[in-house]
Design a protein around this nucleic acid. Structure first.
Lengths: 155, 155
DNA sequence: AAAGAATCGTTAGTATAGCTAACTATATTT
DNA sequence: AAATATAGTTAGCTATACTAACGATTCTTT
């Protein structure tokens, strides 16, 4: 955090961009989420499953924190994933209070397929951009990733 | 739409960017939506209210279509907005089946305040970007807006 | 003009996803 | 050993989504 570039930013400018960024993000996701219906699972389950697949097995509390959701909510989400045989609860050896939640092979498969479908759909629409425009978009996404990385979760 | 530039885009590139764009959009919105809790209204109501405020009065069916939601769902959302005195149903003169839904002054005020809060919050975090980086982000958002404009709603 | 069909919205019933409060079971601290 | 802290679950509430079935109106067709 100490190594950031100087802030030479006009605040109103940031606000105007923030507004349109917010709107664009909403509309992109609204289009894309329809593709996820094909998986037969709801968004909360898919998102939690994604955390499990890409972050590896973790406790219910960690998963709840990662999804910014309270433990009772995550408990129900995991129950749903178990019923669909996409994830499993395993009692932690060494601390019987804890549960290790992990994705099943079936869960990994379903996630990757859904992700593929979603990305292809989105990419099909980005295809109308030129190579240069895609490069701009790529750079902007990198900037956003940086902002998100340094963005404290509290507040 | 006929006047778009040539497609000289490598498809895999678009897919990779699509993936990260999707992820970034999810995480930005996840952070920002917490600010909306201060309004005391849920996301579906705020989003419908936003359509009413910026799109003007419309029928329930139009509002449902704009929000990509089925009529029964929108009926309940509007009921909620009415209970909070943020919107009103008015029977259409000329076609008694139709309802004109419109935002109340109170609804407009709440929406603008919430929007202000959300934008300021997001802008505060974008502030760590330099002027140049903000310009890149701005350009990328414009590109996205263009893609969204030409993106048919069906499918 | 009357009968039938289409349209608009609501009601009923179900599922998912979020919350707080209260509880159980296990670990840790004193 | 007793008190406290931690990890999850259960219970009960609310909001948001769906489909199916219904009522009321309007349009069409005979």
């Amino acid at each position: 955090m100490a190594g950031r570039k100087q802030k030479i930013t006009a605040p109103q400018e940031a606000a105007a961009i923030a507004d349109r960024l917010h709107s664009a993000a909403i509309h992109v996701l609204r289009r894309v989420r329809k593709q996820d219906a094909a998986t037969g699972e709801g968004p909360a389950r898919l998102s939690a499953l994604s955390v499990l697949v890409f972050g590896g097995p973790m406790t219910l509390g960690q998963l709840a924190a990662a999804e910014q959701v309270k433990p009772p909510t995550m408990s129900r989400i995991v129950t749903g994933l178990e019923h669909s045989r996409l994830a499993e609860r395993v009692t932690d050896s060494g601390d019987a209070r804890r549960l290790r939640i992990h994705a099943t092979p079936r869960g990994e498969r379903l996630l990757h397929e859904g992700r593929q479908r979603r990305i292809e759909y989105l990419a099909r629409h980005l295809d109308r951009l030129t190579r240069e425009e895609l490069a701009t978009l790529d750079e902007a996404v990198k900037l956003l990733e940086g902002v998100l990385r340094d963005w404290p979760l509290e507040r």
